[in-house]
Design a protein around this nucleic acid. Sequence first.
DNA 1: GGCCTACTTTGCTGCAGCGCAAACAAAAGG
DNA 2: CCTTTTGTTTGCGCTGCAGCAAAGTAGGCC
Lengths: 276, 276
Amino acid sequence: MLQRKQKDKRDNQIKTTRLPLVEALLHCAGIYRIPFGHKEKALSRLDRSLIAGLPVFQGIAPEDLDRIISRAHAQRVPKGQAIFEQEYEAHFFFLLLDGHVRVVKSTPEGQEVIVRYISPGELIGIAHALGRTTYPASAIAAADCVVLAWPSSLWSEFAAAFPNFGANTYKTVGSRLQDAHTLVVEMSTEQVDQRVAHALLKLVKQSGKQTPDGLLIDFPISRQDIAEMTGTTLHTVSRLLTAWEERGLVKSGRQKVTVVDPDRLLLLAEGRDQRN
Amino acid sequence: MLQRKQKDKRDNQIKTTRLPLVEALLHCAGIYRIPFGHKEKALSRLDRSLIAGLPVFQGIAPEDLDRIISRAHAQRVPKGQAIFEQEYEAHFFFLLLDGHVRVVKSTPEGQEVIVRYISPGELIGIAHALGRTTYPASAIAAADCVVLAWPSSLWSEFAAAFPNFGANTYKTVGSRLQDAHTLVVEMSTEQVDQRVAHALLKLVKQSGKQTPDGLLIDFPISRQDIAEMTGTTLHTVSRLLTAWEERGLVKSGRQKVTVVDPDRLLLLAEGRDQRN
DNA sequence: GGCCTACTTTGCTGCAGCGCAAACAAAAGG
DNA sequence: CCTTTTGTTTGCGCTGCAGCAAAGTAGGCC
């Protein structure tokens, strides 16, 4: 397909240095705050009752949930930093509380492919649930993030002690497998414009925020990112977006995309577009 | 990428009619045979002791294994027939005992993508382990097959009663997720020739049989099949194979591919090929 | 044996979209 | 405020590969 010469800019991920996990570990107990650069991030509202509502913890008794959460460490990850990196020993698994994360696989040649985006409430780094001891991909904070981290060794312990927890994470793995397969099908059968359209629609579905203009993708995303999701180049993505903007399908700016007309974009994604 | 006009020949899978599951159901007890067209297929050697050696049943007590196997029905599937079809209710899950199966996803437009090949000993149709009630893809016998079939309702029962069974199937799902992700990366970053080379190498690794000429892919596979694995057209695959045959990398005939020089093919797959 | 069907080969044409290059614009940082 | 960095736009040429067409070939089947 393409042969993007290494990763245009964003060379070698200089910014994404490995996180010292010691830093910013706050015990989850009652009300607390994590200082977050200029703004303070109040975690008080992300208490047990809220966490309990997440799909991962569905069907788990409150006291069990307490036991699970009490073993976690909260951690903040500034935009651009790695939560974990491909091929490293998977010492921890994570729950994203706030922010957005992109999961990236790098080829030996240094090209990068964005496998998926993670939204708050989802698990990441569950390498052990896949029967691995190393992370199969890197997780980079697409925006400032807050995560809960557990030592990986606890994963099997939790899964054994709380069958629902195991079942729920496996359900996650299952649906990710299906997503991956649809992606393969898209990559095999669709033209670039359809793939990009599909990618935008997925992003909007996953984290679209209603604005006067339309549905805004709620985290910074560059042309390069979209290119790495769809197996094309940032140039082509740029051209497509400007063309679509002229047609009133989307509206976009620096690291920002708003889908104005999802219906027509869907038509385009499915190749049932009248013009071109 | 491509835009293969529907599925060239092999129109609408006329041959892959749905199987009457009633037919050829033999209870797994002791030594038995399934008549198989011209040749008789002796299943006597596929008895418990052999089945017990499969990864799926690792760590399961012999008496539990008996209980599991006693609830299965053996079934033969002639080449070209579907074991199950996409979108149908997943009433059964299967264990492939003999033969080879291709897992195919069809797009609404009628294009088909081969998601993976299944070898003997692997599970298929485990929709319930993915949290689905319908099959996400079709499974077509690439050669005459023998499968064990269980009603899907038993899956959760087994997983609960025999933790190892559950864990092992989840491990399967996990590794399939990883395979799918590598496939996505390949589709995103590689040229057609690299993708085809990688596909051949995977097939050979999975079911290569040593022959005087080299490693033969041990089931009938057409140019069209390879094209559907790699997101290209049978024409391009044909051209590549003849070119490679001239260079002594492979040897191929009708529905038959032998990899003569896996090392040089790997170089090509990784784009470290000297010429072109 | 001979027909028919399914698979394969090969040439030619066209174009989607990549590679390269260069200018621009908006943040960030000092 | 100015400078630097990082993301975006746009033009142009080139090519990998799909699309089309048509002929050749191997098996299956009667």
